[in-house]
Amino acid sequence: MDAVLRALAVYGVLLVVFRAAGKRSVAEITTFDFILLLIISEAVQEALIDGDGSMTNAFVLVITLVGVDILISVLKQRWRWFDRLVDGSPLVVMADGELLRQRMKKARVDEADILSAARASHGLERLDQIKYAVLERNGGISIVPKQPPT
């Protein structure tokens, strides 16, 4: 029973912490973020295993973690509010060529991030070539370029 409760507790805490940390932390992972993730996984591993090195414990933990993940995905599909609660919503940070600075500040997105996404996805060179920039639920920035004048 302990293994199931430990897995549920760790899943819940990680879900809340990573949701609170915001989308940016997952999408644009830096070297330091990567190291931080490794440290977190080490810390969590100890809490999950709790000195029980048996294969049975490992299987119970894996099945519980994957099971709760499936359950959350089913609940997200069933209830839209739950989906938004867990994964958030896309956020428009540039609309009709205009930067929405309040939102950008809250979402910790700057012009350089938008330009970087524009270069990577469409090979755009300047902000005035962008119609919409959207901070997606997965943390990536998607770009809708302005249509060139015909």
Binding site: A3, V60, I63, T64
Partner: peptide, 9 residues
Amino acid sequence: MALLVLAAA
């Protein structure tokens, strides 16, 4: 999987 988790609990 749900049965296994219940059995484990």
